[in-house]
Design a binder for these strands. Structure first.
Lengths: 257, 257
DNA sequence: TGTAGTGTTCTAATATATGGAACAATATAC
DNA sequence: GTATATTGTTCCATATATTAGAACACTACA
């Protein structure tokens, strides 16, 4: 572990988590380093263009460069661009938010998200992380993840609400159900009044690479609507898979107007 | 400039730019470092969870953690969440892509993007960077940027196409026009067949903090449609500004279902 | 006007990152 | 199938780059 690299990322994380620009001393204190040390790190990050000093004050803030790196990852697979228009179409048929999720280690990450016009309330922002076992899309992704991941998750079952899965046996059983029935549901397992349905999305080799989910507040997502959503999800996913398999890139990227 | 930090970010950038996972030796070669050096850097990045070894091979790839950092930046302002539903509404009225852009130093960055259902072709991906002077939204942002930024841009006018602005005087004149007429147009200045219109979005203090743009291929965006779009843009922006000023957060973020 | 805290520069000491050699494990060539 | 080249990884000694600390000018505030 290269110490200075670790520190640099700690500084970057502090800044990205802060409400606004941070002052040098605060950064130093927050990370238990001397001011001069923090200064050197910040100067480096600034030269690399990951951090800038806010135009008026001398406080530091992150630039969008970090965002750019991340955005490239999503762009690379092409999946997001292919899927996006289909998800938009789906979101027009349901009064809830639609999300494209991928797995990152033992986490569920929101790779794309379409807000329904009628929905004021968003339950997840782009890039949001959630434990795999506690959200519908995460369950789908976990059900098709390598055994090593399942073990890691099973060893770390924390209760966020009283409905959270805490028993590894229950987890395994649910995973089996998800695999056979082809969809997953999560009911208030990370946030008490949120509920979601999700289905797997496969690449041309049949590997599950993402999960599409519909999520909303508890009271609106009844049993009936949920099963109707599964049909919609599967239909949408079938189309995305077809488009993707055909090598169709939904977008010609790079140019601007 | 802390050397190891610089190297770590170089490695991260290489990985994020690569098509797929990269092997240790290639990373080392690409960045002119020894294998053992690259190994240590990668191990550090791996411990920090920014990089992982692809599940099958031993090749390295970036995780979504970098994306997460970036996504937090956007989330912080709240602007994106507030604006999003309005932009979706706008995109339903025009057969082109709608984008929310912010300025990052001398660059235009796409902070949010809504693809019109009817548009297969996307001209810009989330997080895309373009020179301020060459895209419509960039012109808007530059027209309201501090003098130091204008100078930096003016000193670096490169010709991407034959329509690109290369004369600082022309740039200054256009900036003045943009300020008085309240919108900007770019016609094939970075990509020959792309065109766009953009208007400024202000915060409650009247500061221009973003630009909303409509962009598409040259042939579809005529003079007439462009001026119609300006009206739509201004209408949409007025609503966003109102919603934002009222402290309305379009989304309650964090929870999942 | 005084006191406490801040951003930044400098220098010296040493903790630390680095290259190179060594090795087993793969990949590639023949 | 063997031989050869290349690869990922470990270890170590050394030089180098990182760090803490003192010093200073500046700001904020009482």
């Amino acid at each position: 572990m290269i110490k200075s690299v670790e520190k640099a990322f700690r500084v970057l994380e502090s800044l990205s988590l802060a409400e606004g620009p941070m002052r040098l001393s605060d950064i130093a204190r927050a990370n238990g380093m001397t001011r001069s040390n923090a200064f050197h790190l910040l100067q480096t990050l600034q030269e690399l263009d990951y951090v800038r000093q806010a135009e008026d004050s001398s406080a530091y803030e992150v630039t969008f460069r970090a965002f750019e790196i991340g955005a490239r990852i999503l762009k690379r697979t092409g999946l997001v661009s292919v899927a996006h228009p289909f998800l938009v179409h789906l979101s027009e048929q349901v009064p809830e938010n639609v999300m494209l999720n991928v797995r990152d280690g033992i986490w569920n990450v929101v790779a794309d998200r379409i807000e329904s016009r009628s929905v004021v309330r968003t339950l997840a922002f782009l890039g949001a992380r959630a434990p795999l076992q506690a959200v519908s899309s995460g369950k789908v992704l976990l059900a098709h993840a390598p055994e090593s991941i399942v073990q890691a998750v099973a060893a770390n079952l924390t209760a966020f609400t009283e409905r959270s899965i805490t028993d590894p046996a229950v987890l395994r059983a649910q995973m089996e159900t998800v695999r056979t029935q082809g969809y997953a549901i999560a009911i208030g397992e990370v946030n008490a009044d949120a509920k979601g349905v999700a289905c797997p999305l496969r690449d041309r080799h049949g590997e599950v690479v993402a999960a599409v989910s519909i999520a909303g507040p508890m009271d609106r997502l009844t049993e009936d609507t949920a099963s109707a959503y599964v049909v919609l999800l599967q239909d949408t996913i079938a189309r995305i898979e077809a488009a993707w398999a055909n090598g169709w890139r939904g977008a010609v990227e790079g140019a601007r107007g």
